[in-house]
Design a protein around this nucleic acid. Sequence first.
RNA 1: CGGGAAGUAGCGCAGCUUGGUAGCGCGCCACGUUCGGGACGUGGAGGCCGGGGGUUCAAGUCCCCCCUUCCCGACCA
Length: 478
Amino acid sequence: MAKTGLPKQEEDFPGWYQEVVKQAGMAEHGMSKGTMIIKPHGYAVWEFIQRALDDRFKATGHENVYFPLFIPQHLLQKEAEHVEGFAPELAVVTHGGGEELEEPLVVRPTSETIIWHTYKNWIQSYRDLPLLYNQWCNVVRWEKRSRLFLRTTEFLWQEGHTAHATSEEAWEETVRMLDVYREVSEDVLAIPVLKGRKSASERFPGAVETLPIEGLMRDRKALQCGTSHFLGQNFAKAYDVTFLNENGEQDHAWATSWGFSTRMIGGTIMAHGDDRGLRLPPAVAPVQVVIVPIYRSDDERGGVLVAADKAKAALSGNGIRVKIDDRDQHRPGFKFSEWELKGVPIRIEIGPRDVEADQVVCASRLDGTKQTLSSSQVISQMPKLLDGIQKGLLKEALDFRTENTHEANDFETLTSGINEAGGFWVGGWCESPECEEKVSAATSATIRVLPLEKEDPGVACAVCGQPGTERATWAKAY
RNA sequence: CGGGAAGUAGCGCAGCUUGGUAGCGCGCCACGUUCGGGACGUGGAGGCCGGGGGUUCAAGUCCCCCCUUCCCGACCA
């Protein structure tokens, strides 16, 4: 049996998570408080996520820009709710060039302020709109508690910032980008997500509506996987961004912003990983197929490696990312375990017996099954096998979510359900912050999502019994 | 920022009670035997014992101060 040295997921999920991240070579803690060093294997996954998002941004007419890391403090203070929301978690630079600065510089926690300050100069007429810009960058938020990938002082993300002439257009953009996130989560990362709205208490500071996608991790806790904000005219008003509309009237621009971060590397690990380690969706696996040659003598080694090279060349020719693990210092069993830990979707074993029979042994990381395939079969079937793993991971995660989504129509069922079973709990809500708070106090869970289109739940508020006006989905979350 | 725990070799830890030559396992390097599910033997390299101050003939060990990390909360992508 394999000895991974990992805690069992069931017994110690946080411990399991931390060990997987470390042992699989994804990331480690940085030197200063709450920071993270992303290692090659982790960063390579991020590059695939970046590419998937960026392709979709371009396809929907967006362009990339870059704004400064430092934001003059006064700029940040113009939107009241925004200041209040971010004030506790700002990093502030007070010295530069060996001297105290006249005005402190805030390290961006997000860039709405500096961007809308700049948009003021870029927008005069409705003909200048929309502005559909995105930037890839790092941001800093001084969180009290950090966890690799999920919450670190500094993290990498993209933040889109668009300006529109009408409320309708901005709302459409907000919803469109939320769906881009849904698509990347589900089709690329194989994490099924719930789309919807946040309650007022969970909204982004300064937003009119915050639309999240929420995924369920294997410990039955939710993870916010991306958010798209409808900012209304709040930032345009705070930063005085006006334009002349088609009717010749001055109007404030309408705004959206949306972000997707390196936290989703952690999400991918927590949504699919098992007791042997990572299970990476083929779409983001830096190595999709690893070939482990097996041999005893130099003679066998030669023949096996020729067969391995041939298989690699053929697979690479089909656009598949293949690696041959020809390290002499490790035996095959060690390599099997190591690549499983790293999450490689397919392992091909080629030994003397296989060379003789012109075949390979092909093992799937999805369920551990092995099959023997002829050399030509393995080439022709590989895209299908990888696609099967991609879809299989999504299906497993979807089934898991279905099993762990429950209805609750009274306080006792709701709170004990959340506390004892975990997962998503759906119930009526009267929209009062008091009822929301009561559940949080009893469970530490929050409303993760309300339906995108507000709908009558047809049941009473699960907390107070008054008529329900929203259908709320609750869960404990990261 | 509260409540706990911990900082000793790259990683995981023992040693501290009762002060007296710096240890173990894994990993690393060399050679040999191994190789279809985490191999073994022999030899070797590697330490400002988190930092600063004290007590003492003598401090990893005792005392004081500081720093950092982890876990549990509150804050959050």
